[in-house]
Design a binder for these strands. Sequence first.
RNA 1: GGGCGGAUAGCUCAGCUGGUUAGAGCGCUUCUCUUACACAGAAGAGGUCGCAGGUUCGAGUCCUGUUCCGCCCACCA
Length: 900
Amino acid sequence: MADIQLQKTYDFSTVEERLYEWWEQSGYFRPRGEGSPFVISMPPPNVTDRLHIGHAMFVAVEDLMIRHSRMKGVPTLWVPGSDHASIATELQLKKQLESEGTSSSELGREAFLERAWEWKDKYGGIITEQLRRLGASCDWQRERFTMDEGLSRAVIESFVRLYEKGLIYRGDYLINWSPGLQTAVSDLEVEYTEEIGTLYHFKYPIEGSDEHIPVATTRPETILGDTAVAVHPEDDRYRQFVGQTCLVPMLNRRIPVIEDDYVDREFGTGALKITPGHDPADYEVGKRHDLPIVNALNKDATMSEAAGPYAGLDRYECRENLWADMEAAGLTIKTEEYLQQVPRSQRGGEIVEPMISTQWFVSMEMLAEPAIEAVREGRIKVVPERFAKVYFNWLENIRDWCISRQLWWGHRIPAWHCGDCGEITIAREAPAQCAACESTSIEQDPDVLDTWFSSALWPFSTLGWPTETEDLRTYYPTTLMETGYDILFFWVARMIMTGLEFTGQVPFSTVYLHGLVRDADGRKMSKTLGNVIDPLEIMDEFGTDALRFTLLTGSSPGQDMSLSMERLAANRNFANKLWNAGRLVLNAIEAAPAEPAGDPTRTDSDRWILSRMNQVIRSVDRLFERHQYGEAGRQIYEFFWSEFADWHLEISKIQTGEGGDRAWLTARILVHVYHSTLRLLHPFMPFVTEELYGLLKSACERHPAQFGPRRGWEDALIIANWPEAGPVEPWESESVAAFTPLQELVVAIRYLRSEREVQAAQKIPVAIKAGDLAAFLEANRAALAWLARLDPEAVQIEADLEPPEDAIPLVVGQIEAYIPLEGLRDPEQDRLRIAKELEAVGEQVERLETLLASQFSERAPAEVVGKEREKLEALQGTASKLEDQLATLESGKWRRSQNQ
RNA sequence: GGGCGGAUAGCUCAGCUGGUUAGAGCGCUUCUCUUACACAGAAGAGGUCGCAGGUUCGAGUCCUGUUCCGCCCACCA
């Protein structure tokens, strides 16, 4: 064995960090070369995030694309960065302040923001360090932050432009209010959960009568904000009350009974209380009927002055007290359990209250239209396609976007309120005076923008927009946007809208959406469930490559996947297999002579593996084009393990052992195939492949034969050329077909060995009646003997031969083999085995005969029919051989000696 | 109420231009520490591809319907 001191097990822990630093320092992450570039903007993680499995997913997918593109020789840029995550960060910081016994209000805005920046500086780098751990080959020199100077300028610029175009407005509207966070949130930030609640039925008394209208509500406290009772115009039960006046329970406020066909007569009592201040549907009804709006809640979700005696109570306390009082007043009817959709804040999980409030909005309809067109016309392709439908559906029914947040951490709205005339001045720079009255008593709007407002600009703001920078010219529009489907609306749709609005171009031409990673039981990972898988722990245990390969295979685009430890372990084993196969290849290189004496020709196994290699490269290319990365990875895995390692590497041992020209050519081919596989695999498993590439390269460079690519070795695999298969050659499929009989024969002999419990060490003889395949088998005699553990001296291969007596018969396609081995004979078992095989083959023959006798022969393409016909002929040949053997066995010919 | 996805081996999942004996990993059975690898090697068992129709010479793959599970969107109190 050659003198190569490599451990038997691949130890990723000593490799990953070293290689990453080397790559980064070598500048490999920066775009190189000429031509149309491939660009991805990284979805910016929140500054204060810790690495979670979602990050691992996007890095795996995007880095795969980036590395592939880079190896293709395309100038490749992956722009990294992070997001200030206004609301999430502010929440965390508030928690921290609380633990310190202080609060944001105590600190005041400025001190709070100082703390926020400190926090960002301290924790903001953690996530980017962790992305390095995943192997993300992004251009860190172009790293951006949503609140850095350039991006802030982009935010202000876009706000002002939208405002000037009349697409931003401010006003009092019903918005979702988060009482705990004390801010408005957008529709998207509200999640509806199905919960069992109570439906309260009660009486709405008619003024000046004993009659009442029965009404039902899930939120009795909102009764205090009612401004009408509505009934269906054709509802005979209540029609007579329309136009009369009801009295709000406990307040005796007078409100009208109105008619509106929004009311569903079938549901509940068939009459509806209208609370325009606290219900979106009621708000619409209120607008139609010009009803007043009563705001019954304060910002902290306690009851407002409008609630009269209940003012100051918490909303739920009020609900209880009010209901008790109503009960005492005889106004209640009944309560019942009711399954309802409860709106909860995506952040804190608290129940969100619809509330009237002064906020800033973006008018979306005009922005949505071009965004719809861009996808419809195919200027943006969505992968998988089905999400385009979801995208259209959302944009076609889009509602205005509430962009103001009553928070401090974020981009402050560039609006200045005049203390004198009340006018608002919108400006790119802080103005000195009011634009309307020139008063200097102006103050900037306290609100900040929704964090997604700045993210929406990400693909171009990171490249310098609004300045026409070199980067913007070169790398915009970007090529592809890759992210989870869960932020299609939050982010992707908005980027498309702003991209078209501000740059006049689509921000990217493909949207690739990956699925969500779930736990082994298919559940969503969440902190409350306690089933969160920490990628850092996974990487410690299995290595980054195993994690990445696991995330990339075994799923298809947009499809959720479960992460199982079994698959992680299997892929860690795969990395180890690569490693050990590498060691063998290195041995073969060491063993090879400096140069061939003659002109060695390839063996059948050589031709076979080279053909398969080309086929796999083509297949992988095809799959990559269609974003079928999982299937591509699977095919490389199968090829490497089940074909290259299991067959060709085994045979190569024989070939290397022959020495001389054979050993030289064998090494050369091993280097080629192994090198190609490393390159195919590099985007999936960057670390182990780079490490092995280094070992392969130096072994080849040390060796006088100078094996390796014609263009020479690159310094690193990360910048090596993607393998090319060239056009399909006829010899490829021929070589693959030619090799099959050898494999089948080997498997058959191994089966027999296993069946007869032959010791592994025992080399057995065989006589082979090979017909047309005699020359082929003769050429592969050594390989056959090695693979099937035969005694090379006792392998007899003839086109035709008289079956030896007292031998175990085997039929493999067109080949008959006889194993003349005393101790192993068991004619009865042979008979059973052959009968069974004959039955199976017979069934196939019958099936094919029927098939070929049917319309199939006329209707199916000649090629397909021909293939089946050939198959039938081969099977018929096999069947007749089996029949012969069976007849011989039954005649007792081979039984004679048993009775001796 | 709309829309989408899933249902394939005991388990977790691939299988994307329909081609006729459906694959992998794990698990299971038997053997082997054979000079790359026991994170391995060899052999094997195991599936009417949710159900019902249809199109087709041919369907896991296309169409229709249907059941169960999951997700998204939506103003039934």
